[in-house]
């Protein structure tokens, strides 16, 4: 082998290394990390911004109604000896309530309200990805698993189920982060009969930055005639709103529907 050969021939290891780097760049540029087209999202309705006004700004689940508390009659002390009948006191009827609630008196306060949670800076996803890739062990000839080892793996593999394709380690970690946030805030209705048996499926979409787009819904459970189911739906929805925004999710999750299955039976059993 002469010097000329040394300059023009490359070792297979070097070629492999260059090839891998090119693949990484290609993955960054055209891989599933970046949506092929901008994600179209609906009009943003940030839950942390409050518009003040009369209470009928939002429809009440139960409209204000009149109810008259009954007059409680004083109870005279009973005669200890063979009791003689006592004439009933003249009842004092409660005054008739007005037909309708008084007209709302709006007190507009135009000052915009600050978000509940301070806005966190948008995470630099690509920087995070590059950092992760940098930590990837160098090629050893063995395949490198793309899902993290440890306890989160089976959980995400069986419970967090993207509709298409396998979830990557980063996606699984992000979903687990969101799940942890919600589980810290969800207060299932365990002490009420039947409360532990209710499973509620809550759906919503996220805008860039993890803000909730539109309403968080619980389908039929929200309109259930069973007050325990209705209360469970409220609690699940509340946990989602309280946990938002969900930061750190891969960008291709924005604009998609997320379905969360709130399993009270498991949560109540784990107390």
């Amino acid at each position: 082998m002469n010097r000329r050969d040394d300059k023009t021939n490359f070792s297979p290891a070097l070629v492999g290394s260059i090839g891998l780097h090119v693949l990484v760049v290609a993955a960054i540029l055209i891989g599933p990390w970046k949506p092929s087209k901008p994600v179209i999202i609906g009009e943003s309705v940030p839950v942390t911004i409050v518009t003040e006004g009369p209470t009928n700004v939002r429809p009440a689940i139960e409209a204000a109604e009149d109810q008259t508390a009954q007059t409680e009659e004083p109870t005279p002390e009973a005669d200890p000896q063979p009791p003689a009948p006592v004439p009933a006191p003249v009842p004092t009827p409660a005054p008739a309530p007005p037909k309708t609630a008084p007209a709302p008196t709006p007190t507009p306060k135009p000052t915009p309200k600050p978000p509940t949670k301070p806005a966190k800076p948008e995470p630099d996803f690509f920087a995070s990805l590059e950092k992760t890739l940098a930590k990837t062990p160098k090629a050893t000839g063995k395949p490198v698993a793309n899902a993290p080892k440890g306890p989160t793996r089976p959980e995400t593999a069986t419970q967090a189920r993207p509709g298409a394709g396998a979830m990557t380690g980063l996606q699984a970690a992000a979903i687990n982060g969101m799940k942890d946030e919600i589980q810290r805030r969800w207060n299932p209705n365990c002490e009420v009969e039947g409360g532990a048996a209710v499973q509620v499926k809550v759906s919503f979409k996220l805008a860039t930055g993890g803000r909730i787009v539109g309403q968080v819904t619980a389908g039929e459970a929200e309109r259930s005639g069973d007050p325990v189911v209705k209360a469970a739906a409220d609690r699940a929805i509340r946990a989602v709103y309280q946990s938002a925004p969900f930061e750190g999710l891969p960008p291709d999750y924005y604009g998609q529907q997320l379905n969360l299955n709130f399993k009270a039976r498991d949560a109540c059993a784990a107390r």
Binding site: R161, G163, G165, I175, Y253
Partner: peptide, 21 residues
Amino acid sequence: AAFAPTAAHAQIEVDIDKGAV
């Protein structure tokens, strides 16, 4: 990349099975 499934049109399902009782 052209044929690999992406999550762009997927629905993500997550089970919430712990809570703060």
